[in-house]
Measured scan of single mutants.
Amino acid sequence: ETFPLDVLVNTAAEDLPRGVDPSRKENFLSDEDFKAVFGMTRSAFANLPLWKQQNLKKEKGLF
């Protein structure tokens, strides 16, 4: 299941849709939104070091 970017960005855990893991908001973006937000594919993002993934998520309001 995916959700629009505005539902996930800068949203407190208690305000997220049911079933969304607040530590993994990026997994609930569509592939198109994911690429638009991070400028890379999911596989490229997954290959980044964890610290870099976290920094990007913070920068984009998805942490």
Rank of each mutant, 00 (worst) to 15 (best):
E1M: 15
E1K: 13
T2K: 11
T2N: 06
T2P: 05
T2D: 03
T2S: 09
F3M: 06
F3Y: 15
F3W: 14
F3V: 07
F3L: 13
P4R: 01
P4D: 07
P4M: 03
P4L: 05
P4V: 03
L5F: 10
L5T: 05
L5M: 11
D6L: 09
D6M: 08
V7M: 14
V7Y: 15
L8W: 02
L8A: 05
L8E: 04
V9I: 14
V9H: 05
N10Y: 04
N10K: 09
N10S: 08
T11S: 13
T11D: 06
T11K: 12
T11W: 09
T11R: 11
T11N: 08
A12T: 11
A13S: 11
A13I: 14
A13G: 10
A13N: 15
A13V: 14
A13R: 10
E14H: 11
E14V: 11
E14W: 01
E14L: 07
D15T: 08
D15Y: 07
D15P: 06
P17W: 03
R18W: 08
R18C: 15
R18Y: 09
R18M: 13
G19S: 11
G19L: 08
G19N: 10
G19Q: 09
V20D: 04
V20W: 03
D21V: 06
D21H: 07
D21S: 06
P22G: 06
P22V: 07
P22T: 06
P22N: 05
P22W: 02
R24T: 08
K25R: 15
K25A: 08
K25I: 15
K25V: 15
K25Y: 06
E26L: 05
E26N: 03
N27L: 13
N27M: 15
F28E: 07
F28W: 14
L29Q: 01
L29M: 07
L29I: 08
L29R: 01
L29S: 01
L29G: 01
S30A: 07
S30L: 02
D31G: 03
D31K: 04
D31P: 07
D31V: 05
D31S: 05
E32P: 07
D33K: 04
D33A: 07
D33S: 06
D33C: 07
F34K: 00
F34L: 01
F34S: 00
F34Y: 02
F34G: 00
K35E: 15
K35V: 15
A36W: 10
A36C: 11
V37F: 06
V37D: 00
V37T: 10
V37L: 13
F38D: 00
G39K: 07
G39T: 02
G39P: 00
G39Q: 09
G39A: 08
M40F: 03
T41E: 13
T41H: 07
T41I: 07
R42V: 03
R42T: 02
S43G: 12
S43Y: 12
S43W: 12
S43Q: 15
A44T: 09
A44E: 15
F45K: 00
F45D: 00
A46P: 00
A46S: 12
A46L: 12
A46Y: 14
N47E: 15
N47M: 14
N47P: 00
N47V: 11
N47G: 10
N47R: 12
L48S: 01
L48T: 01
L48E: 02
P49R: 01
L50E: 11
L50N: 09
L50K: 10
L50A: 12
K52G: 05
K52M: 14
K52N: 07
K52D: 13
K52F: 13
Q53G: 00
Q53V: 01
Q53C: 01
Q53W: 00
Q53P: 00
Q54R: 11
Q54G: 07
Q54Y: 12
N55Y: 13
N55V: 13
N55H: 13
N55T: 13
N55L: 14
N55W: 12
L56N: 01
L56M: 11
L56C: 04
L56W: 01
L56F: 03
L56S: 01
L56K: 04
K57H: 02
K57R: 09
K57E: 05
K57W: 07
K58G: 04
K58T: 08
K58P: 00
K58D: 07
E59Y: 05
K60C: 08
G61C: 09
G61S: 02
G61E: 03
L62R: 03
L62F: 13
L62P: 04
L62E: 03
F63V: 14
F63W: 13
F63H: 15
F63R: 08
